[in-house]
Structures are given as structure tokens and as C-alpha cells.
Design a protein around this nucleic acid. Structure first.
Lengths: 395, 395
DNA sequence: GCGAATATCCTCGTTCTCCGAGCATAATCA
DNA sequence: TGATTATGCTCGGAGAACGAGGATATTCGC
């Protein structure tokens, strides 16, 4: 409806469609590295003849390599498929409040050769620095897409609106132009969203059809992941779990509403519970408090437990709405989950029928690299889509 | 992972794939009845040659009919596509607490010839009655699928687990066997979910990419709709919005948790606010109260407004999480939305940046027929999918 | 150690979708 | 009435997936 500008799709459906099976094969290999040809044929419902054809093409285009699979029993041994070492690459970028990082990833999604630098939030400076780093990292590789994580909603045109960095519409499109004369597509995603994507692909929620990722930094954010893809909402603003009114209705939130969940579980909440003044940097304040909690400071333990209970109660509510396979907690939420009282509060918040088999609540495994790894996944998603493959392989 | 039983998909990918474009065409015609061939080609990126081929096939298989489109200007006039009058049909069934209804629908989704009867929740009796009604309504038509709405989670095997009807695993598969020797697929969906589907297809949320449907009966339920498809969750238990802890944490809910939203906005909440005893039938009690509210009874208006404010506050929270294009309210929620104070409480509950353009909150338009219409949509979804079309058209 | 059994891979000819080009058709405009 | 314009139809070609059958590489049994 609203995409009338994008529908100038010239009749080239067949050009794209011929890569559809290849895209599905690459998806399976990403999901299950080392998958055998036989298993691949079974999952996709392809005949062995078609697998031969498709795999041959993906080997010729550099994506896949094959090697003998360990023999299982009688019969001719099959081969397993993996990302080819010299294959196409994507560049992953994570722009954070005070620094940025750039890395390189292949089909397996592993980010290597990470380069980092601090920045002063000056758009021109950041752009120039990123350009250099991207060009340097991508040199000698066939870079087919760039994924970028930022404290900003997603975008495909390179315009980044990051209010936290005071960036209105900074054009980061030039970052891809340093890679060569050929245009390289750039995908931008929200950092918390992409951290969730990383967990859903290769982290604590790997394999989950429905997963919820929640992270506490300053406030609380997250994303609903369906088959590893984040639900972004109508305007890319979904996932504001921190502004569910689970808290005290009398307490105003900086967002303009009241009773918000986020300010009840982060560093500001801990300061309030401990009688401290509002911390300038709630993130590091909270880390310090969690450290004292682990050391066994009685008053601190009580405060952290109170925040943890508030977090747990809300997680139960979120479970009721989404019915996920798993809930993954990132950032400070991991520390709160470890606090005494979390599990009890979680069970108490669940509907009775769920208590026998409560939805698992797990710690994120990507840690600080979640957004960067998610950015690589975002770029690979594009590059391995039928559209992306068709764009890379003309003719 | 868990669907290892279903993967016995014999290499027949091509058999199914050849109907993919046909399925897309049928989807477009459902979305936009009377769509022209030119517009169709534009949206799907098809050449006119391919449109000719696909439309010819869908005319020959009875799905579509064509007639001259009103001329726009110069040039050869195009034709518009519609559901063929004599085309394939689906049967829609809605099983409710005390009665059931059965109707017939074509590609346009309009349910006609509805037959209804009361029942006593006896599985055998209901099955027999439905069988007769389905056979009678389907007689003389080419019925290609049956959709069934029930107060139960979805299923594809005909086994219905409806705790509210005290049905553990009632097999309604026989309902489709009355239609003839050929097996007809049966799809079962939750009634509230399907009411949401109906709104997302042809109701207040038509065209929305992301929509939220919330309905208040006894308690509060709903569903998140993505491109008209409900998010069911890992176990089909998603959408328990009524058990988000938006309410008073001191108030225990029958579900086992506390502070649940649902009991704060339904008939039980109204009774509490008015100082009445807990009503035996909260649904009809609430309707009576809403009637007195409309009549202007002061105390009643205050009570209804309080419940409406609780509903509105929670709707704002749900908006923050899902960022929908629209929120649709069904059941008693419509009455609450009309109460004084709803809009103000909704705006107050929203994050400040959303208040300039608040996500619209609209009344459901399908009324009591939502679940029945959604069941028809569910059946049509299956019948017009590539798999469904391939199953109907052998060879 | 060697043939039988087994499971997989590859080759070949067929089928079917979608396409582009060119022509046919049906309206408006002058 | 003919020029213009937009659309539909026909036809041959490109390419994906398939089924069948032969080739290949392993284990099993003796």
C-alpha cells in the first residue's frame, strides 16, 4: 500500500526466482553448518539431482565447500556442506555511544578481525573512521553486504536517525562506497534488536521458532523473534518492553507515561531502592551494585532482589503474551536473573498451567558482541536472499 | 526440529511449486477484489504473458472470473478479476459455549447460508449435528477445505482440546468426511484469534501489516496479527493479554498469578467497582452495566470509566511493545472504548513521542461473526496455498 | 580378500514456468 | 475515420526441477 515507490520492480521475477532454492540451501547451511547433502535434500524436499545442480552452482560462486562426511554405515558416503573459506564476506559494524567496532564475517557468521575505535559522536568523524576501517577490513575479500548496528531504528537507505547520538539523519551510505566502485548494499538495524537476532541465530535461542530477547541497560528494551527474524512493528518502534506499565502507576517515567517497567529494574531503580541519588550513569552504577550484591552486602542484596522480582514478574507477563520457546536476557538483566528471588517471582507471575514447564529464561551468550554479530547476520540475510544473490550474480 | 514427523515430504517440490504464482494471484484477488490484470502484474512483478497463463489456469480451475474493467482512458481496456460464482468453496464452523454455526464461503470470504443450533456440549451430539449441517450446506458445491473456530488452540488433525467445553481431545475430523469420499482438510483455530484474523483481512485492520486485536468477554484475550496471520506462539498459547500484570499486584487472578489485566476490565471488575457480588455470568452482567452507563446512570458511568481507563492504559502498553498500525477492540471492549475517559487515559499511557499521532484504536466490525469469518479465512488460506492448490489439482 | 548389498551421486532427456518480442485488439483522441 | 495508446495473446527460448537409470563408494558377510 505505502510502498508505491518501491514497486518499480521491472518484470525480472524469474531472474530472482532462479536463486530461490540456492537461498534456501544457504539458509540451511547457516542454520546447520556441516549439513549433509542427503539431509539437505530431505529438509527442502529436493531430489538428489536438484541438490547436485544447486550445490554445484553454490560451489562455483564461491559460497560453499564440500568435504567427505564421516561415514555412517553401508553405502556411498555423503558429503557435508560448509562455508567456503574464500567465499563472499560481509562487513559488520556496531556504532555505540562512545565507540564503534567493525568486523568481517563469512557465511558461518563468525566475526573476525574486529577493529575498534572511540569516537566523539561527530557524524563526519565517525563516517570517515568507519570508511577507513571498512575499506581496510574488506580489502582482498569479496564483500557483498554491510550490516550496521546503531542505537537507531532500522533503515535500508543508509540514513541513520540515532537520537541518543544526536544524529538526525546521518548518511552512512558512504561507508559502503569505500569498498569499491560496485555498490554494496547497507542494512541498518537497532542494536538491541540485532543482539536479539544474534541470540536467536547462534545464541541462547538458537533454533527457537518464537523467542523473546530482553535487555536492561538504561531502561529495558527487547524484541520478539519469529524464526530468527525480529518483529519491527509498523514504524520500526516495536520492542519498547520497558514501557509496559508493570510498575507503580504513581511513578512518572521520562517517556511521558507512568508506571513503566524499565525504570523499575535498571540502575535508577537500584539507586532508589538503596536511597542513593539518581546516578549520572545508571549503567555503571548498576554494575557496581551488582558487584556488591555478589559480594553479599545485605542491603544491596535486598535491593537487587526487589528489582529482580520486578523483572521476573514482567517476564512472566511477556511470556503470557508471546508464548515463546525461550526468553533470553541480556545486559544487566543477566545479573538480575542471578539474584535471589528471581526464579520464585517468575514462577509466581506465571499462570498456573505454565508452572509445570515454565518457559526457560536464559542468559544471552553473545555478551557485548551481540549487536555486532546480529549486524553480520542482518547483512548475510540480505546477501543470501534470492534478491541478494541475483544482484551479486548478474546474467 | 520438532516437526520430524511431517518431513516425510516426498520429493514433489515441483508439484507444489508450480502453484506458487497461482497462490499469489489468489492472495491478491482476496486482498483486492476486482483487481485488474495490469495491477496484478505490477504488484507481483509478472510479465503480461505470465498473467495470461496463470489467470487462464485459475479460470479453468474455477477460481476466478473476469469481466471488463471500467475504462480509464486511452488504450485497450483491461479486465478485473473476481471470485467465480461457481468456484471452490470452504465451509466455516464456529463452535461456541452454547451453540454452533456453519456457513459457506467462496474466495471472497463472504459467509452465506449460515445454519445455527444450540448444543449441550456433548461431543457426540455436536459432532453429529455439525456433520449433518456441513453435509447439507456443502451439497452441490466443491468444498475444498473446512475451517473451524472453537474456544481451543489451533490444530490440523481435527483433535480439539476445549477446556471451556470440557473437551479433552474431541475428534472433529469426521465433520469433513460427511462431505464425500475425498478427504477434505480441516483447520481448527482459536475463536478469539480467528476474530482477529477476520478484522485483519476484511475488518477494521484490513491492510495493516501489524495489527493487534483485543477482545473482552470474561477476561481479556487477543492476538498479534502480522500481515493478517496470527502469531500463535510456541505452543499455540500466545495472546493471553489478559494476564499481563497491569493491575493491582495485591489482587489474585484465577489463573494463579496476580495483578492480571483481564479481571480489571471485565464484568467482574465492574461488579467490584459497583459494590455488587461477583456475577454468575460476567458477560451479560457487563452488558447490562454498559446499557445503564449509556443511559447516564452516574455511579455506573464512574465505574465503567474506571474500567475503561484500565483498559486504555494497558492498550497503550501493548502499543509500545508491538508498534501496530492499528488496535482493534472486540466484545465488551467496544463498550468500554466508548466510555468517557478512555481516550484521555490512552493518551496518558502513551510515550510522549506517540501522542502526536497515536495508533488508532478502532471497534471491531465483524461483531459476533468474527470467529466464523475468521474460520472461513483460515480454510481459504489453506485451500489457496501452493500446497492446497496442488492437493486439489492432481497431475 | 572378494563379491553382494546398500546408499549416494551424476547424467540425460522431459516437463513446466516465466520471459521477451512481436503482433493483435480495443479503447480514446483529433 | 485514422492515429494514438494501452493491453492481451502467441510463440519460441531459457532455465529449474524431476524421474529413471547408470556409476560410484562404502560396509557386510563369507
Amino acid at each position: 500500500m505505502s510502498a508505491s515507490t518501491e514497486t518499480g520492480r521491472e518484470p525480472g521475477r524469474a531472474r530472482v526466482d532462479r536463486w530461490r532454492t540456492s537461498a534456501e540451501v544457504l539458509d540451511e547451511v547457516r542454520r546447520t553448518p556441516g549439513i549433509t547433502r542427503v539431509e539437505l535434500a530431505r529438509r527442502l524436499g529436493l531430489s538428489s539431482a536438484s541438490v547436485t545442480e544447486t550445490v554445484t552452482r553454490l560451489r562455483e560462486t564461491g559460497w560453499l565447500c564440500e568435504h567427505r562426511a564421516p561415514v555412517q554405515g553401508r553405502g556411498r558416503p555423503t558429503t557435508s556442506l560448509d562455508a567456503a573459506p574464500g567465499g563472499p564476506r560481509v562487513v559488520a559494524v556496531d556504532v555505540r555511544h562512545e565507540d564503534w567496532r567493525v568486523g568481517l564475517a563469512g557465511l558461518d557468521g563468525e566475526v573476525t578481525g574486529v577493529v575498534a575505535a572511540r569516537h566523539d559522536r561527530d557524524p563526519a568523524g565517525v563516517t570517515a573512521g568507519l570508511c577507513r576501517a571498512v575499506a581496510e577490513i574488506g580489502a582482498g575479500h569479496r564483500v557483498v553486504a554491510v550490516g550496521l548496528a546503531a542505537p537507531a531504528p532500522g533503515s535500508d537507505d543508509g540514513l541513520v536517525h540515532a537520537t541518543e547520538l544526536a544524529w538526525d539523519a546521518v548518511d552512512l551510505g558512504s561507508v559502503t562506497r569505500c569498498l569499491g566502485p560496485e555498490p554494496v548494499p547497507l542494512r541498518v538495524g537497532n542494536d538491541a534488536t540485532l543482539a536479539g537476532v544474534a541470540e536467536a541465530r547462534t545464541g541462547a535461542a538458537a533454533g527457537a521458532r518464537t523467542a523473546v530477547f530482553l535487555t536492561v541497560e538504561v531502561g529495558l528494551g527487547g524484541t520478539l523473534l519469529l524464526d530468527g527474524r525480529p518483529h519491527l512493528g509498523a514504524h520500526g518502534a516495536a520492542g519498547e518492553y520497558g514501557h509496559l506499565p508493570f510498575g507503580d502507576p504513581a511513578r512518572r517515567c521520562a517517556c511521558g507515561a507512568s508506571g513503566c517497567w524499565g525504570p523499575e529494574v535498571d540502575g535508577r531503580a537500584l539507586a532508589r531502592l538503596l536511597g542513593d541519588t539518581v546516578p549520572a550513569d545508571p549503567r555503571s552504577y548498576a554494575e557496581a551494585v551488582l558487584g556488591r550484591c555478589a559480594a553479599g552486602d545485605g542491603a544491596v542484596v535486598a535491593a537487587v532482589s526487589a528489582a529482580a522480582a520486578g523483572l521476573a514478574r514482567g517476564v512472566a507477563g511477556v511470556v503470557h503474551v508471546h508464548d515463546p520457546d525461550v526468553v533470553v536476557l541480556g545486559g544487566l538483566a543477566r545479573g538480575l536473573r542471578a539474584a535471589p528471588g528471581f526464579d520464585e517471582a517468575y514462577l509466581r507471575g506465571l499462570m498456573a498451567f505454565r508452572r509445570d514447564r515454565p518457559v526457560p529464561v536464559l542468559d544471552a551468550v553473545h555478551g557485548d558482541d551481540g549487536a555486532l554479530h546480529g549486524a553480520a547476520a542482518l547483512a548475510l540475510d540480505h546477501a543470501t536472499s534470492p534478491e541478494g544473490l541475483a544482484a551479486i550474480n548478474p546474467g
